Amino acid sequence: MLNLAGSAALPRLLAGLGHQVMTVDKDLEVIRKLAADPRLVTIAAEAESLPFDPCQFDAVVAHQVFHRFAPGLVLSEMARVLRPGGTACVSYLVRDDSVPWVKRLVKLLRQVDENAMRGDYGDASVEALATSKYFPQVETRSFRVWQQVNRPTLLAMVSNQPAVAALDGEMRELVLADAAQLYDSATPGADELRLPFQLKVWRAWVDHEELTAPIEIDDTGLVIPL
Rank of each mutant, 00 (worst) to 15 (best):
Q111S: 11
A79G: 00
D37H: 10
A177Q: 14
L40E: 01
A36G: 12
L75E: 05
G189P: 10
R12Y: 01
D191C: 07
A88H: 04
L174V: 12
A179Q: 06
G18K: 06
Q148V: 14
C89T: 14
P71V: 03
A128M: 04
L17M: 13
L155G: 03
F143M: 12
A36D: 11
V149I: 14
L82I: 07
W101D: 15
L167N: 05
V149A: 00
P196F: 07
E127H: 08
N150L: 06
T42M: 06
A213P: 00
M78S: 02
D113R: 09
G18E: 06
L40P: 03
A35Q: 10
M171Y: 00
H19R: 13
E46V: 01
L82C: 04
L50S: 05
I215M: 02
V24G: 04
T212I: 11
V74D: 02
R172I: 05
L105T: 09
A156H: 06
N150E: 13
A116N: 10
V90F: 15
A116G: 10
H67Q: 12
A9Y: 12
L154Y: 03
P188S: 13
F69P: 01
V41L: 09
L10T: 12
T87Y: 00
R194N: 10
R104M: 15
E48D: 08
L199Q: 09
V149T: 09
V112T: 15
F52W: 08
P51D: 10
E173N: 11
E29L: 11
I215H: 03
C89F: 00
M171V: 08
H67G: 01
A70T: 09
V60K: 04
V90A: 12
A35W: 00
Q181S: 09
G85L: 09
A5F: 00
V81C: 06
R110P: 03
T187E: 06
G119C: 11
V223P: 00
L108A: 07
D191Y: 07
R12T: 06
A8E: 07
L40Y: 03
W101E: 15
M78A: 10
S49Y: 00
N150G: 10
H208V: 10
A45L: 08
T212H: 12
P100L: 13
V65R: 11
V94G: 06
A124G: 08
M22H: 09
T140I: 10
A44K: 06
D53E: 15
D184I: 00
L93C: 11
